[in-house]
Amino acid sequence: MPQPTTLRTDRAPAAVGPYAQGVRLGDLVFCSGQLPIDPVTGEIAADVEAQTRQSLANVAAVLEAGGASLATVVKTTVFLKDMNQFALMNAVYQQFFGTSVSARSTIEVARLPRDVLVEIEAIAGVSAPQE
């Protein structure tokens, strides 16, 4: 069995606890939940649409660090503070994924770190085997 490889990229916020931004194991990349934090400024946008956009940009950066991409995502989990904002989040989500269809769960949560409105994690496949 291949050994897991810890992923790290400056294009997504650094992990702030005992976890990795992502892990690659064989032909799969597991992206930890990405908050909508701009990796350069550390700022968080105010609305759910901008937060979804930043979270997905961070997800994409971690996946790319592991040799995957949004096009190879097989499963996402979206943690949403207010399910009433689902349509707004979903419209931005669709801009990133287009007609690609992967499995997805969306879960309303009471609170997220730094009181953000959305957090997104993903699992994606890669085309080249792990070295």
Rank of each mutant, 00 (worst) to 15 (best):
M1T: 10
M1I: 09
P2N: 10
P4H: 07
T6H: 00
L7W: 15
L7Q: 01
A12H: 14
P13T: 07
A14R: 08
V16E: 12
V16L: 12
V16R: 08
G17A: 11
G17E: 06
P18I: 00
P18E: 01
Y19I: 02
Y19F: 14
A20W: 02
A20F: 00
A20D: 04
Q21T: 06
Q21A: 10
G22H: 04
V23R: 00
R24S: 04
G26A: 10
G26F: 02
G26C: 04
G26D: 08
V29Y: 05
V29C: 03
F30M: 04
F30S: 07
F30H: 02
C31I: 00
C31T: 05
G33Q: 00
L35K: 13
L35A: 15
P36Y: 08
I37P: 13
D38N: 10
P39I: 08
P39M: 10
V40K: 01
G42M: 11
E43G: 14
I44K: 05
A46K: 11
V48H: 03
E49R: 15
Q51I: 12
R53S: 06
Q54E: 15
S55G: 12
L56S: 08
A57I: 06
A57M: 04
A60N: 10
A61Q: 02
V62S: 06
L63I: 10
E64I: 07
E64P: 01
A65F: 15
A65C: 08
G66C: 06
G66W: 12
G66V: 03
G67V: 03
G67H: 01
L70T: 08
L70D: 08
T72G: 09
V73R: 12
V74C: 15
T76M: 03
T77M: 01
V78Q: 02
F79M: 11
F79I: 03
K81A: 15
D82K: 13
D82I: 14
N84I: 02
F86E: 03
F86I: 01
L88W: 04
L88D: 06
N90H: 14
A91T: 15
Q94I: 03
Q95K: 05
Q95R: 15
Q95V: 02
F96P: 02
F96H: 11
F97E: 05
G98W: 11
G98Y: 06
G98A: 07
V101K: 13
V101A: 09
A103M: 08
R104S: 10
I107A: 03
A110N: 09
A110I: 03
L112R: 13
P113N: 07
P113Q: 14
R114L: 09
D115Y: 15
L117I: 02
L117K: 14
V118Y: 05
V118K: 03
E119L: 00
I120H: 00
I120T: 02
E121V: 08
E121M: 09
E121T: 08
A122F: 07
I123M: 06
A124L: 04
A124W: 00
G125H: 11
V126M: 02
V126N: 06
A128W: 01
Q130P: 00
E131K: 09
